[in-house]
Amino acid sequence: MGANSDLAAVLESLHPAAGDTSLIGADPRLCAQALRVDGIAVSVTTDSGLGELLWSTEGTSTRLEDLQYELGQGPGHETALYCAPVLVPDLARVPTGRWPALLPEAAALGVGAVFCFPLSVGSACLGTLTLQQTAPGPLPDATVTDAWLLANALAALIVEGSPQQSAFAVATEGSDFYRAAVHQASGMISVQADISLAQALLRLRTHAFRHGRSLTEVAQDVVSRRLSFRDDEKGPDIPAGEGTEGP
């Protein structure tokens, strides 16, 4: 009982109910509580190799996923690459060379431990489930078991498909996409700077990281035309690869 019955409730509610436009029905906060961790996030891998964030507790976990997306490194990338769990009970003890850009950011964010599980079918990795704790320390065995249970249930959900997923695929109104602005901004930057979409996304990520801002914030600025990459590399004071503040 206790944590397990809480988890059972989360598993039951994973499939979104009719009328709910979310791709994952359950409440991430309740899920984190059931697993007794400080935060939880689910990302799904895409062609770009980056994980699109689908579901997360607000604050630290969301920011940690964003950082890994911006920096292109971290436990999520390794989990997706090797389709194996990456359990880091103490981030402070990870050699700097493993994730040189991420580690200081994660420390500043107050993340002490990260546990990343693959959402796998056979040996293919579809995405990642990441648990995060402020206090360093290993996950209890029971929590590891619960996390695997949740990861497998999520993998099944991702493979199966749902009316919500079909609606999401064609951008039906109400089917919110966390990084919608990021991809819109990539499209805009690709025209502004006459570069490929992949390069545009990279430039956006670099800009966000250099200015210590979140990627979604910077993307919003591009979409709202507060920031343009049109004059990129022309201004004398602008380092290559960065945007300029628009009018």
Partner: peptide, 10 residues
């Protein structure tokens, strides 16, 4: 997987 193609489309 279904959701991955949904994401790619989106």
């Amino acid at each position: 997987a279904q959701l991955q193609s949904a994401l790619s489309s989106r």
